[in-house]
Design a protein around this nucleic acid. Structure first.
Lengths: 112, 112
DNA sequence: ATAATATATTCGAATATACTAATGTGTCAA
DNA sequence: TTGACACATTAGTATATTCGAATATATTAT
């Protein structure tokens, strides 16, 4: 019943080194507002005004969340005229969002 | 290059409902100390004194981290005499830790 | 009962976070 | 160049988090 981990046992030293990095990433995702934004971006790029409209908070507050995610390289931007489009910046973040979707959002079809 | 999401598009309503729950879980994992503890527990149950020894912070501080993870049901406990053993409490948390391992710790063998 | 050990809890200070409101910056159109 | 729009940044405040230190509780051995 304890899920088997893939082949190699975890390397505690490397884990300690990466823990801060991954914890920082998780912390950046650990906000309902940011997580919803990221889930939206996981499907493709989105303009800021749409993210603001779906957020329930002010434009300034959303922009601060976006800035935080930019600073930690979770998202990247592209400008088209006055509009700025956000998208997921890395394969790792995309994979993690996919995993979260599988674990928490996909209706359990294959569960004992 | 944008990763395809499994079949069904995301349900934005259900996502909003689950965002707070998942964000809470991510927030609880989003600390280097707690993440290292969880990674350790992902391999099997561990006594508190071992977690303290590997943490670099005081016993009281570790106990506070453990309390937070207990409260959010990330971990569960079993007492044997004076010793309390911690373990991962849910399949979801275990799966998420497995995913984090795959994404960030498994040496990229299959990457283009 | 007392002491020793393992773990939990409480307290206070330092730091981080998230919000609103206000203001700044870049782009487009007239 | 002026005004409008889209977005970013700053300032101030309220709340949350984290830590060490001290103390409390539970278990075992004597």
């Amino acid at each position: 019943m304890p899920r088997a981990r893939p082949s190699k046992p975890m390397n505690m030293e490397g884990m300690a080194a990466k823990a801060a990095e991954v914890a920082g990433l998780l912390g950046t995702m650990a906000s309902p507002v940011r997580l919803l934004i990221l889930c939206s971006l996981a499907e493709g790029e989105r303009p800021v005004h749409e993210l603001v409209a779906n957020s329930g908070i002010t434009q300034g507050a959303v922009s601060q969340h976006l800035a935080k995610m930019r600073n930690l390289k979770l998202v990247s931007t592209r400008r088209d005229g006055q509009t700025i489009y956000y998208s997921i910046a890395s394969k790792e973040v995309q994979q993690l969002l996919d995993s979260l979707y599988c674990i928490f959002c996909k209706e359990t079809e294959k569960q004992k």
